[in-house]
């Protein structure tokens, strides 16, 4: 099927397979299209069907709430073309970043499912073929027999990765996380689509890095830090990392973060903010390279960063509310330019 996407500035055409999501077909063909979560939640790929018939692959997608009823709108990430289609966007077509790897489908098997806290797991996918991605990007991860894919940011970084690492939080009633938290999952085949996401890091930005993350949002930040640490970036630029969780039961990846500070004591600082608990005895002693504070993570960042926003690129990740609080702080208090702020809002 031939798909034509009309942006406000220009149009693109590509072929889509039967049953293939229109967004994925366009991305796979190397075109940049508007999207954020790619998984039916955020509504960023909403567009208007001008011509042609489509199938709705997930009629219960939460992102449908953004569609105007009766206006012929669809989510490009959850609709497949049944015939040639013409689709109109509300905005310009995004520019394809030159360094951005073209997303595609990847096969792999699940390995190394390891609990990190009472409700966070780490898992890896061993890929059939190596994959390139930018630090901070994510994959749509699907499990056999489970409807829909979920968006997870890579934790690791490699120019050509054979294994992708992820962290996942157990959600009550979450089909995906419940399956992963179950037994005997090692070796289960998985399908991934990606890499996706625009909140990525490239060494060419030449800025000090300010990373503010809540919970499993730390995943993409870890990848950004791993990339920065793989070259000499952190010898010439700072990285200030603020990682927020509820209590000391919820902290994870502290060993990895501590090792980074020990390697770059002059340029890397990591603060762990506990929102619901004062810092318990022993936590600082066990993690002497890390700073611990009580309060919301954006408040900890605001206190520590005051007057230090020179040549700074901020990466935000976490819950929609957490990202919003950090954003407000950066725009209103820190007066950081919006062009220096990156995040992918999945909510």
């Amino acid at each position: 099927m031939n798909i034509e996407i009309i942006g406000k500035d220009r149009s693109v055409r590509f072929d889509a397979n039967e049953g293939e999501r229109i967004l994925q077909a366009g991305l796979r063909n190397g075109f940049a299209l508007p999207y954020e979560c790619g998984s039916g939640t955020c509504g960023a790929c909403r567009a208007k069907l001008i011509q042609g018939e489509v199938d709705d692959l997930w009629p219960e997608a939460p992102g449908r709430k953004y569609l105007k009823s009766g206006a012929g709108e669809l989510l490009m990430c959850q609709h497949a073309a049944r015939e040639d289609c013409v689709i109109q966007l509300r905005s310009n077509l995004p520019e394809a970043g030159q360094a951005t790897p073209v997303p595609r489908e990847h096969g792999g098997i699940l390995i190394d499912v390891v609990p990190l806290t009472h409700d966070v797991m780490r898992f890896s996918v061993e890929l059939q073929d190596p994959c390139s991605f930018l630090a901070g990007q994510f994959m749509l991860v699907g499990l056999p027999g489970l409807q829909g894919a979920r968006a997870y940011s890579m934790v690791n970084f490699s120019q050509s990765a054979h294994t992708l690492e992820f962290v996942i939080k157990k959600k009550p009633g979450g089909g995906f996380s419940n399956r992963l938290f179950g037994d005997h999952m090692d070796g289960v085949p998985m399908t991934l689509f990606g890499p996706l996401g625009a909140a990525s890091f490239e060494a060419g930005v030449k800025r000090n890095l300010l990373c503010i993350a809540g919970g499993t949002g730390i995943a993409g930040i870890m990848s950004i830090l791993a990339h920065a640490a793989s070259g000499d970036y952190l010898s010439c630029h700072r990285a200030d990392v603020f990682f927020g969780v509820r209590t000391s039961r919820d902290v994870f990846l502290l060993r990895e973060l501590g090792a980074l500070v020990e390697r770059y004591p002059e340029s890397v600082a990591v603060t762990i903010a506990l929102s619901d608990e004062s810092v318990p005895t022993g936590l600082r002693e066990r993690n002497p390279s890390l700073r611990f504070e009580t309060g919301f993570v954006h408040e900890a960042a605001s206190r520590a960063m005051a007057g230090r926003y020179d040549r700074t690129r901020a990466y935000l990740a976490g819950t929609p509310l957490g990202v919003e609080a950090a954003l407000k702080m950066l725009l209103l208090e820190a007066r950081l330019s919006a062009t220096e702020i990156r995040y992918d809002k999945f909510g």
Binding site: A44, Y66, K68, R90, L331, A338
Partner: peptide
Amino acid sequence: PHMLTALTEGIFDGCVLTCTKHLWQ
């Protein structure tokens, strides 16, 4: 004007209005 996100949720500093969805200003 972009995705019809509610601007009541936007950030206003007295001069510049920012939509928090994609940082249009």
